[in-house]
Simulated scan of single mutants.
Amino acid sequence: MKRFISIMFFMCMLVSLQAQEIYTVKNIPKVHLQDKTRYVCNPAGILSAPACDEMDRMLYALEQQTGIETVVAAVPSIGSEDCFDFAHRLLNEWGVGKKEKNNGLVILLVTDQRCIQFYTGYGLEGDLPDAICKRIQTRDMIPYLKDGNWDAGMTAGIRAVCARLDGSMENDTEEEEDLSATGIFLLCFGIIGIGLFTVILAMRAATKCPNCGQHKLQRSGSKLVSRRNGVRTEDVTYTCRNCGHKVVRRQQSYDENYRGG
């Protein structure tokens, strides 16, 4: 009886370990390399067969239309590995995407980490930037994935990705607003930055001594030349604190005491 209990305990432990198998880039099945019409790697059966078939059909149509190659991997665990690094190595290991275009995409679901990760090749970053990936995850996938509805979440995400990449997605008002706000911010930031840079250059040029090259010129005196129509003209003397060289510059400024006439 004790032997039977020991055997049953061992079998339960074995089943538990199998259920929590940790997948690596080396042991995960390379389904797309074995069958070019299959894009979903689902070794632990997290996704249903109908969901995998639907995603395979969408991704096959996407590749036929655009040449973009996508691989989806859904696994229960990758141990302590980082999802981003795993997806990056998966793209390289499987050679996802056309080599000359580097237009591959890996979408990774790891259920024990509650992680959904997009990783794009360099050639796809313009069509599917990080902001769009994040929006697809947040808007189309996470509402289902947080409830454990893997089929609905992954299918909705793949559908949104395909619509984005094949051009069938309608204009995204939220995206346009974000881009407009970002553009305005960058424009204002650029104008302010250029203005500050110009002022700094002018200040440095004004303090540079033509004799010794040091930025040591300091105003030491001035002589009024004229005062006309509210404009004050002066010859301002600057003396270098390093070599004593003097520079006279004619400058004009607004006369605060001018009242017209």
Rank of each mutant, 00 (worst) to 15 (best):
2 K>P: 08
3 R>A: 14
3 R>K: 13
5 I>C: 08
5 I>W: 13
5 I>A: 12
6 S>I: 13
6 S>G: 08
8 M>K: 05
10 F>A: 15
12 C>S: 08
18 Q>S: 07
22 I>A: 02
23 Y>Q: 04
23 Y>C: 02
25 V>S: 00
29 P>H: 02
29 P>Y: 03
36 K>N: 09
38 R>D: 13
40 V>W: 08
42 N>Q: 03
43 P>E: 04
46 I>M: 10
50 P>I: 08
50 P>E: 10
52 C>T: 09
53 D>C: 01
54 E>Q: 11
56 D>S: 01
60 Y>K: 13
61 A>K: 11
63 E>M: 07
63 E>K: 10
66 T>F: 09
66 T>G: 05
66 T>Y: 06
67 G>E: 10
67 G>Y: 08
72 V>M: 08
77 S>I: 08
78 I>M: 06
79 G>E: 09
79 G>F: 05
81 E>S: 09
83 C>H: 06
83 C>I: 07
87 A>Y: 04
89 R>N: 14
92 N>F: 13
93 E>A: 09
97 G>S: 04
97 G>Y: 03
98 K>V: 15
102 N>M: 10
105 L>I: 12
107 I>Y: 02
111 T>I: 09
111 T>C: 05
111 T>G: 00
120 T>L: 06
123 G>H: 04
125 E>G: 00
129 P>G: 00
132 I>Q: 02
133 C>D: 01
134 K>T: 14
136 I>W: 02
138 T>C: 08
142 I>T: 14
143 P>H: 03
143 P>N: 08
150 W>V: 08
151 D>W: 02
157 G>A: 01
158 I>P: 06
158 I>E: 05
162 C>E: 13
163 A>N: 09
163 A>V: 08
165 L>V: 02
166 D>E: 03
170 E>G: 08
172 D>G: 01
172 D>C: 07
177 E>A: 03
178 D>H: 11
179 L>I: 14
180 S>F: 14
185 F>N: 11
188 C>I: 14
190 G>K: 01
192 I>R: 04
192 I>C: 10
193 G>A: 04
194 I>M: 15
195 G>Q: 10
195 G>F: 10
203 M>Y: 07
204 R>W: 12
206 A>S: 15
206 A>C: 05
207 T>L: 10
207 T>D: 13
207 T>Y: 01
208 K>F: 04
209 C>L: 07
214 Q>E: 12
215 H>I: 12
215 H>V: 13
220 S>A: 13
221 G>M: 05
225 V>A: 09
227 R>E: 15
232 R>S: 06
236 V>W: 01
237 T>E: 15
237 T>K: 15
240 C>F: 07
240 C>G: 03
241 R>N: 12
242 N>V: 00
243 C>M: 05
245 H>T: 10
246 K>S: 11
247 V>Y: 01
248 V>P: 02
248 V>S: 03
250 R>Q: 12
251 Q>Y: 03
252 Q>C: 06
255 D>I: 04
258 Y>I: 11
259 R>M: 11
259 R>I: 13
260 G>H: 02
